[in-house]
Design a protein around this nucleic acid. Structure first.
Lengths: 222, 222
DNA sequence: TTTTGTGAACTCCTTCACAGCT
DNA sequence: AGCTGTGAAGGAGTTCACAAAA
């Protein structure tokens, strides 16, 4: 369930505020979803709620973390050390959630050997060796669009099985490799569409309301 | 439809490669979706296809752009000029798609007056004046989590009606304001979950397969 | 009495399959 | 012959509503 990370974060916030238990209604409100949905989602993890009381905040955090596989650190690498790659490398949220940045790759000679976020930038030629040596399964792709597909193939060949794709390209990967896409332009275009609608543009029959809460299913070949 | 921006980009790629027409099958393949879905989506825009031939690439780009409201430039501002805000400001995809960066806000005194991506950084106190003066409707929120909600309220009061939220917080906004969320940690956690599953973790009954292509519906109050 | 857990209804999206146009 | 447009079937996720537990 893609909502578990969201619940988990909301719960961590609550734990920080010294809350011991939450009801499905309270959790739903904080996460911005329906309470029945919360109960159904959590019921798939097993029966961890107490009727008449709610859920134990710390216990639920542990359970969700375990299901998501966040109990151990995971090595990640970033490919492409432009503005975006650099921002991602410096993003504190990664380390906080157990993602350990172990390698940065960029062919730019001026960057080679430089340190970003405490990690030295290597040439992409080192991908195969580094990925194998550090047992990296997750790669963050922040390269120019033209090299997105070839770089993806190289990463997959090197042993990468999960890719977080920041390029504006649909990546084709073999079965067994997961891809999540973050497309900044698409997000902005959807907001532009909302603005357009707000200003009384031609309503797309039957779909103007739908577009409000819809999203592309992030495809993956699992 | 949240898929229109994706179709549009694929079509622009095709136009660059001098393709004149596309079949729903070809477009579907390039966009990574089912061809019936493509035909149904496009049929909502009107009948722009020619049976036996396909769709006119340029015509379709125009039609989608019109529906999405991408025919005119839209002013956007970025709030928070940390690593991420800076990377976003420099992102070339924004300008290419008709998003004009008109203001950057950050309270950091060392940044005030500095130029990033050709735009001077202003103090957040200038939000109200700038937003009104430049007719900005879209804001990109890249501030620390603690100030996400108060800053959101300030933006909404200033007249912002669409927010692209990069903070790890669920924003509460009045009806009529759209929010899209980009959460880097959540994306990584979902990939971690896939890795976890791959390594033979406890399958969450009935949901392990589902999680492969699921996603949070990006909520918005429209 | 409060709140969970869940069968059942519902709603929406997706996919099929084919009639009809070019 | 090829490909669109769409009614109908199918499937998946959401919400309702209530029985059961604390």
């Amino acid at each position: 369930m893609a909502r578990l990370p969201l619940y988990r974060r909301v719960l961590v916030d609550m734990a920080d505020r010294a809350l011991l238990t939450v009801s499905s209604v309270a959790l739903a409100e904080a996460a911005g979803v329906n309470s029945a949905k919360v109960r159904k989602d959590l019921s798939y993890l097993g029966s961890y709620g107490i009727r008449g009381v709610g859920y134990d905040v710390d216990g639920l955090i542990q359970t969700i973390s375990r299901v998501l596989g966040l109990t151990s650190d995971r090595a990640v690498c970033i490919v492409g050390v432009g503005h975006l790659g650099r921002a991602l490398a410096d993003y504190p949220g990664f380390a906080e959630r157990g993602f350990r940045l172990v390698a940065l790759f960029d062919p730019d000679e001026e960057l080679l050997g430089a340190e970003v976020a405490g990690v030295r930038v290597s040439h992409p030629d080192a991908i195969e060796v580094s990925v194998a040596a550090e047992d990296v399964a997750i790669a963050i792709l922040a390269v120019p669009a033209q090299v997105a597909q070839p770089m993806t193939e190289r990463l997959v060949n090197a042993g990468i099985t999960s890719i977080l794709n920041f390029t504006p390209r649909v990546l084709s990967v073999p079965a067994g490799v997961s891809v999540r896409k973050v497309d900044l332009s698409v997000e902005l275009e959807i907001l532009a569409f909302h603005e357009h609608q707000r200003l009384g543009a031609v309503p797309v029959r039957g779909l103007d309301a739908v577009a409000e809460l819809d999203d592309l299913g992030h495809a993956s070949a699992g």
